[in-house]
Simulated assay, not measured.
Amino acid sequence: MSASTPIRTLTPASVLARKGQTPLVCLTAYTTPIARLADAACDIVLVGDSVGMVLHGLPSTLGVTMEMMILHGKAVMRGIQKALCVVDMPFGSYEESPAQAFRNASRLLAETGASAVKLEGGVQMKETIAFLVARGVPVMGHIGLTPQAVNVLGGYKVQGRNEDAQRVMEDARAVEEAGAFAIVLEKLPRSLGQDITECLAIPTIGIGAGPDCDGQILVIDDMLGLFADFKPKFVKRYATLADDAAKALAAYADDVRQRAFPDAEHSFGDKP
């Protein structure tokens, strides 16, 4: 191992061992500079298929491709030193069969250098998750609101309310039994998030699933306030960077139009 080889302090096994301990801090990242910032603060950095909406302007995650995930996965890995990097498997890359899932998951890990993949689905994905884990692919599960199934679910609705809680609980148990090392719980009632967390031996990562999960994740652009006109209920904004950026751009445009920039400080003189 060379002196420049990153020493990753978090692995799927060490994340699994964090069950019930200090909550896991997780954020998405899609670029090298943001990955460096996230790496300093986070335990897990997810290269989410949300990249399609956040960076590429797609209306949903359904148009995200393997090539996009590999491109952004490579970029994120260049910025990570210690955090566990997980890459989302995009829609259509794993649902057909366990063999298809392994083909694409192994490609994601080999070409990006990430340590694990994440895929959506519970009971119906149990066989696929088990197939991947048995072949050396660490898997993070994702149940509740699964954005890739948004057309079937009828929109971005809270899942697991009332009698629907049993279905979500069965999904959670199936993902654990299949061998996933952790599971994302998205948009669930707080009480169900707590019940699942207490029921499972693997860590739960909440996004709109209440404070009782073993960790939390947000889309980094949401929590930094880079989207000025969209804020899900479960998002807390820790900054308003869209406002700051708009002010900076307006100041730059004004300086250019008034020939105040570049000034002497930002111009080159002739050589003596």
Rank of each mutant, 00 (worst) to 15 (best):
V256R: 07
D263W: 03
A264E: 13
R259S: 06
P262W: 00
A251Y: 04
L249Q: 15
A242C: 03
Y252S: 12
A246C: 04
A264D: 08
K231I: 00
A264W: 14
A250F: 06
R259A: 02
G225R: 01
F261I: 02
A260W: 14
A239T: 02
A228W: 14
L226F: 05
V256T: 11
A250M: 13
A242M: 08
F268G: 06
K233Q: 09
Y238S: 00
A248L: 03
K233G: 08
V256Q: 09
L226A: 05
I220Q: 11
F268H: 07
G225N: 00
M223C: 07
E265C: 08
F234C: 04
D222E: 11
A246H: 01
P232D: 02
A264K: 14
F234R: 01
L224R: 03
K233T: 13
I220S: 15
A251N: 04
D243A: 09
F234G: 01
A239D: 02
A245Y: 04
R257E: 15
K233H: 06
A250R: 12
A260D: 12
V235F: 12
R259L: 13
F227D: 11
Y238L: 01
D222W: 00
D229S: 07
P232C: 00
K247G: 05
A253R: 07
K231D: 01
Q258K: 07
R257I: 08
L241S: 05
A228H: 10
T240K: 09
A250W: 12
F268K: 06
V256D: 10
A239L: 06
T240W: 12
F268R: 03
F268I: 01
A264P: 00
A253V: 14
M223T: 10
A253I: 14
F227Q: 09
A260T: 08
D255G: 00
F227H: 03
A245H: 09
R259M: 14
